[in-house]
Design a protein around this nucleic acid. Structure first.
Lengths: 326, 326
DNA sequence: CCCTATTCGGCAAACGGTTGCAGTCAATAG
DNA sequence: CTATTGACTGCAACCGTTTGCCGAATAGGG
C-alpha cells in the first residue's frame, strides 16, 4: 500500500540496506548511489515509517506532554511553544490532559511510555516518589517542580512576587493580602516565602487568606476575606483568581484600583483582556515549553545528568493596581 | 530492556502467539491458559508495544489533531475534549499547531501520516483540493468546513447569528454592524447569510465592515467603523474581536452596553471573564471535539462513508448587550 | 473402542526498518 | 606484479507483535 524502503530499493536498483543508510548515515554511501536513491525516493514520495525504525533503534521521535488542564489559559502558550520547538527538532508530541487526576496521570504515562522517547510533565499532581519511580524507565522533565534525579524547568515566581510587593509598597499600600492557591505546590511555597520576606523588609503587613479554589469563583469568595482584613492590595494565586477577586470587590461596590489594588499571576489572555487590565506576575510559559523540550531532548540524547533551568518572572504593570487610598 | 511478549510467554510457559492472542482475541484461548498468561503479564507489568503491533495490523491507535493556533482561546476546549474522548477509546493524540500556515499544515500531515490512523483538521487553511488529495491516503475529519468525500463536523453559526439579530432587534436596535473576520471561511459565509436574512426579515439595517484581523487589535480598529456607521449594535467575528471593539468604543468614550451593544462569537473564557461579560454566540467546541473523534474513529473502522454532523450554536446573553439608546 | 469434529496452541512468516558482518573491487604501497 | 587497505554495498538477523496454517489433543457420536 504505502511506499516502503523496499520499493525505493527496487526503483534505485540497490539493496534496502543501502536505502536505509542513505537516510541514516549518508556518509557511508557513495555520492553517486546516494543521488540515485534520493531521486528514486523523491519520485516515489517515500517517507520513512518512524514507528518501524523505532522498533530497532529505540527512538520513536515522539514526546509526551502532560498537563493538568488544557483549557486552563495558563497551559496553551506552553503547549504551543513546546510543540513548535519539538517539531523543529523533528519530533512530534502527544498532548494529554489529566483533569488534575494523579491516577489518570500515572496510567497515561504508562501507556504512553512505549511510544515516546521522553515526557514533559507540567505541574504534575503525582507524588515525587511516583515520578522518581517512573523516571527510572523513561526520561522526564518536570516543569515547576523539583524531583530528585530529573531535569526541571522552574519559573521563579519569587522574583516576580518580590517585585509585586515592592510595586504595591511603592504605591503606599501598607497591608497586603496574599491569596494562595489550593495546596502545597512548589509555586505557592515560593510565593509565600518571597512575599513574607519582602513585606518584612519593607515594613508592610502581610495577611495570608484561603486557601481557595484556583478559579474565578475562588476569587469571588476571597474578595470578602480581603475586605475583612482591611488590606488595600491583593496578590492572587493566578489571573483567574485575581479576576474573581475584582469581580467580588466590584459586587460589593469596591473600586479596583481606586480602593483596592489587585495583582494576578501568569499573564494569561484572560488577564490581558480583562477590564481593568490586570497587573500580573508574568510567567514565561513559552520559554518554559521550549526549555523543557530542550532539556528532555538532551536527556534523551544520553546526558543522564539532571539539568535545571530557572526562568525569571517579572511584574507586568497594567491597570488593576494604583495608589493606596488615603 | 523493557518487558516484551516473549518474557511473558516464557514466564507463563506458553508460546508468544498464545500471549498475543490472549490480548487480541481472548476467545481463542482456553480460559485456564488465559488466566496463567494474564497473571504472568500482570506480575511482569507487561504493556504491549503499540508501535510494534501497528507494524502488522496497520492500526497505530494514534490520532492527529491539527489546529491553526493552540493559543487562540477557541481551540483549547476542543483539544481537551477530543483528547479525553480519544483516550476513552484507547487512542492517543498528537496535537499540532500550524501557525495558520498552509505550507506547514501539509508538511505536518505528511510526516504524521505514517504514525496515525486518521487526522482531525480544525478549520484547515489548506485548499479543498489539497485536502481531498491527502484524504485519499488517510481518513480525515474536518471541523467547520466541508470537503467532498470527507466527514465533517459543522458548528452551525447561522442559528446563533439569527438569534443574535433577533435579540438585538428585540432590544430596539435598528442598525446592526457585522464585523466579519478574514474572508471566505465557511463560518464567515454562514454568518453573513444568516445575518442578511434575519435583518431583512425584521426590517433592520445591516452594515458589513472590514474585513479586519480576527484579533483584539482588529476589533479596536473596527470600533471606529462602527461609530461611523451610526449603528447601535455590533456582531463581531469572535470574542476577541468583540472585546477589542468594546475597548475601542470605551477609548472613544462610548459606553457598552449603554450606547452600543456588542455580541461576540465562540464563548471563550476571555469573553466570560471580560467586563462587561460578553453576550456571545456559543460554539459547542467540546462537543465538536468529541464528535470529530467519533466520526474519525468510524472512518478508521472502515465506514468509508463521509458522515456529517451539524452542531447547533445558540446565543448566550450576558451583559454586553442592552436596550438601544433612545 | 474407533472415528471425526473441535478446540488449542505452536510454528513461522510477515510488517518496515537498522546494523554488524563479510565480500567485492579498485586504488595504493612495496 | 602482488599484497594490503579502504570504500562501498549486499546479506541476514533482529526489533515486538500478529496471524494463517497445521498438528495434537480432547470430546463426542456411533
Amino acid at each position: 500500500m504505502a511506499v516502503t524502503i523496499r520499493d525505493v530499493a527496487k526503483a534505485a536498483g540497490v539493496h534496502v540496506s543501502t536505502v536505509s543508510r542513505t537516510f541514516s548515515s549518508p556518509h557511508l554511501v557513495n555520492s553517486a548511489t546516494r543521488e540515485r536513491v534520493l531521486a528514486a525516493a523523491q519520485r516515489l514520495d517515500y517517507r520513512p515509517n518512524r514507528a518501524a525504525s523505532a522498533l530497532t533503534t529505540g527512538r520513536t521521535h515522539n514526546l509526551g506532554l502532560i498537563v493538568a488542564d488544557i483549557a486552563n489559559p495558563f497551559f496553551p502558550p506552553l503547549i504551543k511553544a513546546a510543540q513548535a520547538y519539538a517539531r523543529e527538532r523533528e519530533y512530534h508530541v502527544f498532548v494529554a490532559d489529566t483533569d488534575e487526576d494523579p491516577q489518570s496521570e500515572e496510567e497515561l504515562i504508562q501507556t504512553l511510555a512505549k511510544q515516546v522517547d521522553g515526557v514533559v510533565l507540567v505541574a504534575p499532581r503525582l507524588t515525587n516518589l511516583a515520578i522518581e519511580r517512573l523516571g527510572m524507565d523513561l526520561p522526564f522533565v518536570v516543569v515547576n517542580r523539583r524531583v530528585k534525579g530529573l531535569s526541571a524547568v522552574l519559573m521563579d515566581i519569587g522574583h516576580g512576587t518580590t517585585e509585586a510587593v515592592e510595586h504595591l509598597a511603592g504605591l503606599g499600600h501598607r497591608r497586603i493580602v496574599l491569596a494562595p492557591g489550593p495546596r502545597a505546590s512548589w509555586s505557592s511555597e515560593q510565593m509565600g516565602r518571597a512575599a513574607a520576606s519582602a513585606t518584612e523588609r519593607l515594613g508592610v503587613d502581610l495577611v495570608v487568606t484561603g486557601p481557595n479554589a484556583p478559579t474565578e469563583q475562588g476569587g469571588v469568595t476571597a474578595a470578602a476575606e480581603v475586605l475583612d482584613s482591611g488590606a488595600t492590595a491583593v496578590i492572587a494565586y493566578n489571573d483567574l483568581v485575581a479576576i474573581g477577586v475584582i469581580e467580588g470587590l466590584n459586587d460589593r461596590g469596591v473600586d479596583v484600583p481606586g480602593q483596592v489594588s489587585v495583582v494576578g499571576v501568569d499573564d494569561t489572555v484572560a488577564g490581558r483582556l480583562n477590564r481593568p487590565k490586570l497587573t500580573t506576575i508574568a510567567m514565561p510559559t513559552p520559554a518554559a515549553g521550549r526549555t523543557a523540550v530542550d532539556l528532555l531532548l538532551q536527556a534523551v540524547a544520553g546526558g543522564r545528568t539532571a539539568a535545571q533551568a530557572t526562568l525569571e518572572t517579572s511584574l507586568t504593570i497594567r491597570d488593576s493596581t494604583g495608589p493606596a487610598p488615603s
